[in-house]
Each structure stands twice: as C-alpha cells, then as structure tokens.
C-alpha cells in the first residue's frame, strides 16, 4: 500500500532526486516507528506476562479505561517533551508533543494487542469490553516505553554506558563473539528473571497451541532483529561492523535466539518450574513462551555492549 502510493507520488514528480528524498522520508518514518515499538517491547513485556494486569483489564469499567487513557496521554506527553522515539528530535513544530503522544499511544495499543493476541489472551471468546480493558491496561507500559525509546538504549552514545564498556573492550581486545554471546545471556537473564518464577508461563502454555508457538518464535526473532539491526539505536552502526563468527545479522539473530531459549529453559529449571521428569514438549513450550521476553532482553543486552 505504502509502496504503491510512494510510486504514484514519484511517477508524478518524475524527478530522481525527489524520488530519493521521498524514499528517505518513508524509510526514516518506518525506522522511527520500529524504534518506538522496540522501546515499547523492552519496557512493556514484563507487565504483559502478569496475570493481575489481565484481570484488572478484564474487570475494569469503561470509565476507568478512559481515565487510564487520559492519564497515559498526560504522562507520555510529559515524557515526549524530554525524549521520544523520533530521530532527529523535532521540538520546533506546533503541536509536535501532541502528535507524537498520539503516535506513541497508537504504537502502544497495536503492540500490546498484538502480543495479547499471540499469547491467546485475546481470542474470539473474549468479550469486547474485556478485550478493550486488557489492551488498554497493557498498552500503558508500552506507550511509556515508546516515549522512552531513545532513552532506553541511548542516543548518539552520549550518556549511555555503552561507550565506557566498548572502550574497555577495545583495550582488552575481547573476542567479539564471546562478548556478544555473554551480552545476550546477561540481557536475557535480566528480563527473564522477573518472569521465570511466576505462574504466568504455565498459564500461557496451557492456552497456546502449536501454530501459535511457531508464531511466537517468529515474533521473537523479528523483534530481536528489529531492536539490534533496524531500530537505529545507538550502537547499531557499530554492530553492523562488528566482526565475529556469527556477525551476519541473520545468523547472529538466530544464534542469540537459541541462547535466549536455553537461558529461558535454565531459569525455569532454576526456579523449579520445570523438572527433569517433565516431558520434553513441556520444556519446549515453556521455554518458547519465556523465550519471547528473554530474546528481547538479549537483543537489548547486545546493544548495551
């Protein structure tokens, strides 16, 4: 759709440089949205794996939902004035804060609805009011994450801890493959430790069937790729130049997904949510479901190195 309209605009103008400019506009716009979405996932995913939030959403009255939306709007607006998800920041336009807040909330609502759908918390059996409540309450942390996207993973490396560690890396001359793998593991553990000991994994596993597990795998890989290679967070250019065994974007994403899965399985075993007596299908299902947050954490971890 977008490509077609782009083509139409281009053919009308028939100007080569303008075409290039137009292409850049769409590219940077999509990058901005992806960056916002990634920030949302980083911030919002732990709350998506919290049953209580689903219940609060289910039993919320429409008045409370509207209040939640208004409060989110205010907080996101205030955050937008300092950070935001767009690059370069554009403070100088009229109503810029308002439009970006609307966009952040739009991204938050879509992302949270998508993950709720993926985890089968939204399904045809759920009533409209309940679905709205769940989506709205889960979208709050997502929208905050979108508003904090630039902040979460540093921008231009100014105040991020990235620079310090990378300088250390250079002096020690660490093996880049090893540092990547350990960064993935650390990120996966930081996010996964919040979720692994809770009952949500088992609850979600009960509701998810095989095709949905495949969809969860695909989503995990896609979000991980987007965070590391697409969203234009601080260390992206450095990452593309990074040399190591798995440093092609595709192979790196795959290897790191596998590491995040193993980390998820180990954490589940550590918290005795999985035992050796459980059949391997349970191990697989639970690891894939916890794998979604750990992969996101792992991707963020790699950027922070």
């Amino acid at each position: 759709m977008k490509k077609n309209s782009l083509r139409r605009i281009c053919s009308k103008s028939g100007n080569n440089s303008q075409r290039k400019h137009q292409k850049n506009i769409w590219r940077s716009e999509i990058n901005d949205i992806v960056r916002g979405g990634c920030g949302g996932f980083l911030f919002g995913i732990p709350l998506l794996y919290t049953m209580e939030v689903w219940w609060i959403g289910s039993s919320a009255t429409p008045a409370m939902m509207l209040i939640a939306l208004v409060l989110t709007f205010i907080v996101v607006y205030l955050l937008m004035r300092t950070e935001g998800f767009r690059k370069p920041k554009r403070f100088n336009r009229p109503y810029q804060g308002v439009t970006e807040t609307v966009e952040a909330m739009g991204i938050g609502l879509v992302c949270s609805a998508f993950i709720l759908l993926l985890l089968r918390e939204l399904s045809p059996g759920v009533s409209l009011k309940e679905a709205l409540g769940k989506t709205i309450y889960e979208s709050v942390p997502f929208s905050l994450g979108v508003a904090l996207a630039n902040h979460l993973l540093g921008e231009n490396g100014t105040n991020s801890p990235d620079n310090r560690t990378s300088r250390q890396d250079d002096s020690i001359d660490n093996n880049p493959t090893f540092s990547d793998l350990s960064a993935t593991l650390i990120g996966a553990i930081v996010i996964g430790f919040n979720i692994a000991p809770t009952d949500e994994i088992a609850t979600l596993a009960a509701a998810v069937s095989e095709p949905w597990l495949l969809a969860i795998i695909a989503t995990s890989v896609l979000i991980s790729y987007a965070i590391v290679f697409q969203a234009g967070f601080s260390a992206q250019d450095k990452r593309r130049k990074h040399k190591g065994i798995f440093q092609k974007p595709f192979s790196e994403t795959m290897i790191c997904y596998l590491i995040s899965l193993v980390a998820a399985a180990i954490m589940l075993w550590f918290f005795q949510k999985l035992t050796w007596n459980d059949p391997w299908t349970i191990w697989l299902e639970h690891s894939i479901i916890l794998g979604l947050p750990t992969t996101i954490g792992g991707a963020a971890g790699r950027l922070a190195i």
Partner: peptide, 14 residues
Amino acid sequence: VAEWVTFSIASFIL
C-alpha cells in the same frame, strides 16, 4: 507525507 500517514493512522486507532 510519511509523518502525516503515521499520525492519521495513530489518531484513527486512538
């Protein structure tokens, strides 16, 4: 144009 498209879709959703 791209920003307008994003904004209109986002406001439509909201």
